[in-house]
Design a protein around this nucleic acid. Structure first.
Lengths: 153, 153
DNA sequence: GTTGAAACCTCAGATCC
DNA sequence: GGATCTGAGGTTTCAAC
């Protein structure tokens, strides 16, 4: 799907405020409501817009701790990589799992209620998982930037 | 703010679908619309809900590449840490910046249009930044999990 | 083919119980 | 928390460019 300037404006605005009303959106991009809504629906259908999400405060929901875990596996065969991905898919505290090139095979973003529960996840579910060679984890002190999505010019 | 079971249901649903109508939301959590809306507004006001965002496909927006960069600084004095945070705050391709404990001071999530433009960001804006000791970066091969927010029971 | 105008109909938000 | 009401917004239809 090719995106023109107005499409990009729409995406930038909805990325910023996903609950903006269609009439506001239309006004901001210089259209009337119907064509604006058609563009939004087209962007959704094309998968450019994957969904809409409320951003919640992890602390207030009982997850004040965020940890990054760098995982190296013993085998990098595709089936072993996929097996690890399936393994972490079932751990709700693991919010992100990215396969990387280089020495580190995966980086995980993990949330936890406290250090003890993080330690429990780490030892019972990660370091002890099949094929895991090493897990190096770092606590997040603070996050100065955590923007959603991508820059839209 | 204390969250009861219904509040958590509301948050889980809005985290999943941020554009759900209040009527649908109310029905799903077993309330009528007005009290449901009051709860949502209260959650927003208390900062439990920080905002709503459209999730866009980075590839279709011209950013198929995601890189994690592990940055170590020469000085960890608070003013130097803050200076680095301010520095990366102005780089739109840097989407996340988390300060970590341990050897690595910061982990950054960076998006780019291609390897060349990533390399350019890396050399002109990161390795050359004041106080930067080392930057180790890893390309993301694939992301098997990238959930928004936190687990809500 | 895309926009704009008008109609309809659902929803958000306020008020009161 | 629920019921009612009003105005605003979402959505469809159709005409025009």
């Amino acid at each position: 799907m090719t995106l023109d300037r107005i499409d990009r404006q729409i995406l930038a605005l909805l990325q910023e405020d996903g609950r903006m009303t269609n009439v506001d959106l239309a006004e901001r991009v210089g259209l009337t409501a119907p064509p604006c809504l058609r563009r939004v629906r087209a962007l959704e259908q094309a998968g450019v817009i994957r969904g809409y999400h409320a951003e919640c405060d992890p602390s207030q929901l009982g997850f004040p701790i965020t940890v990054f875990a760098m995982v190296s596996l013993r085998s990098q065969a595709e089936q072993d990589l996929a097996a690890f991905e399936n393994h972490v898919a079932a751990i709700p505290e693991v919010r992100e799992c990215h396969m990387l090139n280089g020495e580190i095979d995966f980086i995980l973003k993990i949330v936890a209620a406290d250090l003890e529960s993080f330690q429990r996840i780490l030892t019972t579910k990660l370091t002890s998982a099949p094929n895991v060679a090493s897990v190096k984890s770092s606590l997040t002190i603070r996050s100065s930037k955590s923007q959603v999505g991508v820059p839209i010019a």
